[in-house]
Amino acid sequence: MSKQTPFSVCGESLMSPMHICGFFDSREQQYEVIIPYIMEGLAANDKVINILEGNRHGEHCRCLADNGISIAETMASGQLEILASEDTYIKGGEFAADKMYDMLERNLLSASRAGYESVRACGDMVWALKNLPGTDELLAYEASLNVLTPKHSCSLICMYDVSSFSEDTLTEVLLTHPYVIKNGKISKNKHYLEPSAVKSGISDFVSKPLKS
């Protein structure tokens, strides 16, 4: 188990490492949760990583700047990274769970070597709705993060738009996160299953449509 470090989300004081599923019904609700989380991380000298669709980067940066975050300064120092889904989750036009796991682990190790005590990462999972090759590895990937996070001082928020994903997909995704954000509140997830238990149900999951 890595060193525990404090962080806050949804007004609750928590300790990393933590893998969190964020269910949001609007862009506004999403930002109400992640902006304070990001701002606190920057003030605490945590490494902050945001991953979202490339066409959202301009809007995202404007939102951060409107809340007093110096985009140029924090990105130049390397403390803030804003990455594109197209260069991470679906690099090369496909999703590969093992490659994404390795990329995230490299980023966590790099942050530690750079002197950051903790990493805060938010990933928008909308890329999965494109149903590109490998998307059926989504559940396996989410489950694998519960093996990765305890090894590092980090908090990871996987953000899902509840109006876009099917109810079956959201139910399955919920099984892979120890904590869940819903209606702007965070709680321990009573439906969480250990990675080994989740893997046994992957064959059932992959046949289900992701989009409602």
Rank of each mutant, 00 (worst) to 15 (best):
S2Q: 09
S2T: 08
Q4I: 07
F7Q: 03
V9T: 08
C10I: 09
C10R: 07
C10D: 04
M15S: 13
S16A: 15
I20M: 03
I20E: 01
F24A: 01
F24D: 00
Q29E: 09
Q29T: 07
E32N: 12
I35V: 15
I35F: 06
Y37P: 07
I38F: 10
I38N: 08
M39C: 11
E40Q: 15
G41I: 03
L42V: 13
A44F: 02
N45K: 10
L52A: 14
L52M: 11
G54P: 07
N55K: 14
N55S: 05
R56W: 05
R56D: 03
H57L: 10
R62S: 11
C63S: 13
A65W: 00
I69C: 06
A72P: 02
E73N: 02
M75Q: 15
S77C: 12
S77M: 12
G78E: 02
G78I: 14
L80K: 01
I82K: 03
I82D: 08
L83F: 13
L83D: 01
S85A: 12
S85L: 04
E86C: 06
E86F: 12
E86T: 09
Y89R: 09
I90V: 15
K91S: 14
G92T: 06
G93V: 05
F95W: 04
F95L: 11
F95Y: 08
A96D: 11
K99Y: 09
M100W: 03
M100S: 03
Y101A: 09
Y101I: 07
Y101H: 15
D102W: 03
M103N: 09
N107M: 15
L108K: 06
L109A: 06
S112E: 13
S112N: 14
R113P: 01
G115Y: 07
G115L: 10
E117H: 12
E117N: 15
V119W: 02
A121E: 04
A121C: 13
D124H: 05
D124C: 04
V126A: 10
A128Q: 10
K130A: 15
N131M: 14
L132V: 12
L132N: 02
P133Y: 08
E137P: 02
E137Q: 15
L138F: 11
L138Q: 05
A140F: 06
E142D: 11
A143G: 06
S144Q: 11
S144D: 01
L145P: 01
V147H: 13
L148G: 13
T149V: 10
P150D: 05
P150N: 09
H152L: 10
H152Q: 00
H152N: 00
S153R: 01
S155L: 03
L156N: 04
L156M: 14
Y160H: 07
S164L: 10
S166M: 08
T169S: 12
T169Q: 07
L170M: 15
T171W: 12
E172L: 14
V173D: 05
L174R: 06
L175E: 11
H177L: 09
Y179W: 15
V180K: 11
I181F: 02
K182S: 12
K182V: 05
G184Y: 06
G184V: 03
K185I: 04
I186R: 00
N189F: 02
N189I: 03
L193F: 06
L193K: 12
E194G: 03
E194C: 04
A197Q: 13
A197C: 08
K199I: 08
G201F: 08
G201P: 01
D204P: 00
F205D: 12
S207C: 08
K208N: 06
K208Q: 10
K208A: 12
P209M: 11
L210G: 01
S212L: 11
S212E: 07
